[in-house]
Design a protein around this nucleic acid. Structure first.
Lengths: 386, 386
DNA sequence: CCGATTTATTCTTCCTGTCAAGTAAAGAAG
DNA sequence: CTTCTTTACTTGACAGGAAGAATAAATCGG
C-alpha cells in the first residue's frame, strides 16, 4: 500500500495526466466501470487497468460489488473512490463568525464547528483557525488540505487577501500564515467561487461543462464555470452582479445606487423594505417571508419585486455567458417559493429573444454550505494543481 | 519538403500537441527564438529543435535573420511562420450582401470581394459563395480552409445554422453544402465570435488570456475569451447584450423593450432618434455624427446617451466575467470619439465598487473585418481541431 | 585569446499510453 | 449441455514523445 498522492513537498509522487483525470472522473461521476471511464476519457482499456492498479493497491479506489443492469457480455466491475481515504477542512470567515467543517473526499460533512470571531487582528483569526483545525483533526487520519473562503477578492493563485470589505483586510497573506500555523497545505478563495466549485463536482453542476451559480442572501453573488473550468476573473473579481441595475426608480442600496439588484433582493433590503413600509422595525426576514406566504400585500409585493430582480440577474448572466444551467442558491433561496412566478416572468422577459430561457435549478441551502465549498476548493486544488 | 499539415482527410499527418502549440505560439506571438518558446510552453530546448525541424523543412517556419537586442551568450535565432504558406477565405453573410476576403496565415488580407445577395434561397447563396471562392483562388496556392460567419446562432461544432434572423434560415447545414461545392474544409460561426477569434490571435487580445469584445453597429454584440478559450454558449448563444436594460423610460427597441442597449446605441436607433427629434427623416448616421462633433445639442445628447449605454454594457460584462481587457469595435466604433466622456463616466459608475474599471481598448473598424474574422475562424479550426 | 554565457543540436534514456493478443465471465443459440 | 457471441479486463511488447546530458556554436568582456 504505497503512497499515490504526494504526502509532502519533499515526497514528489508523480501523477500522470491520465491518472489525475481518471481519479477525478471516478470521484465526480460516482462508481463507473473501467470500460466506461475509458470511453469517457478517450483512453484505451489497457490504460485503465494500468492507471487504476496503483490507486487500488493504495486503497484510494475500491472495486464496488454493485451490479449494473444485466447485459450480455462479461459484467463490468464498477470502481469507486474510497471517500474516507482523505480528509479536508473548509472554513468560511464572516465578519463576526467562523464556520468550519471536516469533509471526506466526496465532500460529505463529518463534523462541523462554529465559533464567534471576537476581533479581526490577524493573529487572533489565525489562532482561532488553528484552534478549529486542531479540533477537527482526527488522530488516525491526517488532513490533506485546508480551504478558507471569504467574501472579497481572493483566489488560490495568489494567497493574499486583496480586499475584504467585511473583515477590513488588505494585502494579507492569510493562506501562508495559516499553512505555517497548522502545517497542512492551505488555499484561499472567494466564497462564491468556492460554492461554485462544490456545485461543479458534487452538486447540480455535475455533468454540465458550463453553468452559473447565483446566490442570494446578505448579498447577491455569481460564480461561473465555462468549458469545465471555474472562472477566476482579473484580480479575483467575477460574478459581481450585486449592483446590477434593475430599474432607475427603485430602492436605494448602501452604495447609493437606485434600483440595483441588492436593493431589491438581498435579505437585509427585503426586510428593511417591509419593516419600514409597515413601521415594524423589529420584523425579521423570516417574519417577512411568512407574511408573504400568508398573502400579506406589502410582503407579497416586495418579494415579487425581489423575485423579478433575481430573474433579471439570471437572464442577464445567461445572455452574456450562455450557460447550460443556472443554479440558484444562497442563505435565502428558500424565498423562491413565494416569488417563483415573478422570477420566471422576469427571466422570460429579459432572456434574449433568439434563445430559450436557461434551465434554472433551485438548490436548497444549508448554513454550512459555505464552509463545505471551502473544503471543495482545497480538494480541487490538491487534485488538479499538484 | 514533405507535408506537415494534413492536406486531406485521406492524408492523416499527425501533429503532436507540442507541434501544434509551438506553431500557434510562433504564429500569434511573432518571431521568437526556440529558447523563448521553450520557456513559454514549458518544454525542453531539445524538444524545440525536434519539433521545429519538420516545419522548417516543409517551409512553414523560417529562420528570421532579425537580431534581438545584443546580449551575452550565443545570439538567438528567431523563428517565424511563413504567412504565405497557407491561404484562407473568410466570408461574411448579411441580409443583402456577401463580403469575402482571402488572407494568409497571419490573417493579412490579400484580396477582397463584395457582391450583392439577390435572394436567400440556399442554392443561390451557395452558388454565389462558390463563385466568390473561385474568384479568390490563386492557381498556384490552394486554399486551406473557408470560414463563413453570419449573425445568428451558429458554431463550428455543429455545421447547421439554427436561426438566422436576417437570412430567414433555420436548421440549414450550410457548412456541409459549401464544403461539397468548393471541396475545401468549411466552418461556420457566429459573426461576433469570429471577430473575437481575430482579436484573440491577431488583434488587441494577443497576450490576454481573458478578454471581452463589445461591438457596436447595426446591433450590439459581445464575444468572450476566458482562460485562452473562445466561449461558445449553449446553442451558440453568448454575448447577447443587445437587449440589456439600461433604464426603463428610454426609447423603444423593435422588440418592444423600453430603454435597452440597442435602443440607445445601435446606429439605426441613434439615427432615428436624431432624425425624428429634428424632423429630418433623411439624415444619415454620418450626418448625425458630424452634427454631434460640431456640438449640435440634440445630436450631442443622443450620442452621450449612447456612450453611457455602451459604458454600462461594458461594465456589466466586466462585472460578470472579470476580463483583463474589453475591446470596443464594430462598424460604428468611431462614434466613440464624440461620446468618450459619457462612456467613461458610465463605465466607472457601473463598475462594481470592489474593483477598478476594466481597461478598454478602442479598435478602429474596417468594413472587411467581419470577413477577416471568418477567415480566422477557419484558420483556428484547422490549426486547433484537426 | 580565454573564460563566461546563452543558444542550439545530437544522442541516449525514460516512460506513458496504445496495440495486439489473450483471458474472464456472462447470456444466447443450437 | 455445449458452443458461440459479446463485453470487460489483463498482459506484455512496442512506439514515440519529451526530458536529460553532453557537445557545438556564437558572442561578449576582459
Amino acid at each position: 500500500m504505497g503512497p499515490v498522492f504526494s504526502q509532502s513537498a519533499s515526497d514528489p509522487v508523480r501523477l500522470t495526466d491520465a491518472m489525475r483525470s481518471v481519479f477525478v472522473e471516478l470521484l465526480v461521476h460516482g462508481p463507473l466501470s473501467r470500460a466506461e471511464v475509458a470511453r469517457r476519457l478517450a483512453l484505451s482499456p489497457s490504460a485503465l487497468t494500468k492507471v487504476t492498479k496503483p490507486f487500488i493497491e493504495a486503497g484510494y479506489l475500491l472495486e464496488a460489488a454493485g451490479e449494473g443492469p444485466a447485459t450480455v457480455g462479461r459484467p463490468s466491475q464498477p470502481l469507486q473512490v474510497d471517500a474516507s481515504r482523505m480528509a479536508f477542512v473548509g472554513i468560511k470567515l464572516t465578519e463576526d463568525e467562523l464556520f468550519a467543517v471536516r469533509t471526506d473526499l466526496r465532500a460529505t460533512i463529518q463534523k462541523e464547528v462554529a465559533r464567534p470571531l471576537a476581533g479581526h487582528e490577524i493573529d487572533h483569526v489565525c489562532g482561532q483557525i488553528a484552534d478549529v483545525v486542531g479540533e477537527l483533526t482526527v488522530p488516525g487520519s491526517p488532513l490533506s488540505a485546508v480551504g478558507i473562503s471569504l467574501a472579497g477578492t481572493a483566489s488560490p493563485s495568489d494567497p493574499v487577501v486583496h480586499t475584504s470589505p467585511f473583515l477590513g483586510w488588505s494585502q494579507l497573506p492569510l493562506a501562508k500564515l495559516v499553512e505555517e500555523a497548522v502545517s497542512v497545505p492551505t488555499v484561499l478563495d472567494n466564497d462564491v467561487r468556492a460554492l461554485t466549485a462544490a456545485q461543479q463536482w458534487f452538486g447540480e453542476g455535475v455533468g454540465h461543462s458550463s453553468f452559473a451559480l447565483v446566490t442570494v442572501g446578505a448579498g447577491i453573488g455569481c460564480g461561473l464555470v465555462v468549458g469545465d473550468r471555474l472562472v477566476t476573473g482579473q484580480s479575483g473579481g467575477t460574478g459581481l452582479v450585486g449592483h446590477l441595475q434593475i430599474d432607475d426608480h427603485g430602492p436605494l442600496c448602501e452604495r447609493g445606487h437606485r434600483g440595483c439588484a441588492r436593493a431589491y433582493a438581498s435579505s437585509p433590503a427585503i426586510r428593511r423594505s417591509i419593516a419600514s413600509a409597515l413601521d415594524l422595525p423589529d420584523l425579521t426576514f423570516d417574519d417577512c417571508l411568512a407574511m408573504a406566504a400568508g398573502g400579506h400585500p406589502v410582503a407579497r409585493r416586495v418579494f415579487d419585486d425581489a423575485g423579478a430582480a433575481l430573474g433579471q440577474v439570471v437572464a442577464t448572466v445567461a445572455n452574456i455567458t450562455g450557460p447550460e444551467l443556472v443554479i440558484l442558491s444562497g442563505e435565502t433561496v428558500h424565498m423562491y417559493q413565494v416569488c417563483a412566478e415573478a422570477f420566471q416572468a422576469a427571466l422570460i422577459r429579459h432572456t434574449h429573444w433568439t434563445t430559450t430561457p436557461v434551465r434554472v435549478a433551485v438548490k436548497p441551502f444549508a448554513f454550512n454550505e459555505w464552509a463545505r465549498g471551502a473544503a471543495v476548493t482545497a480538494l480541487q486544488h490538491l487534485l488538479l494543481h499538484r
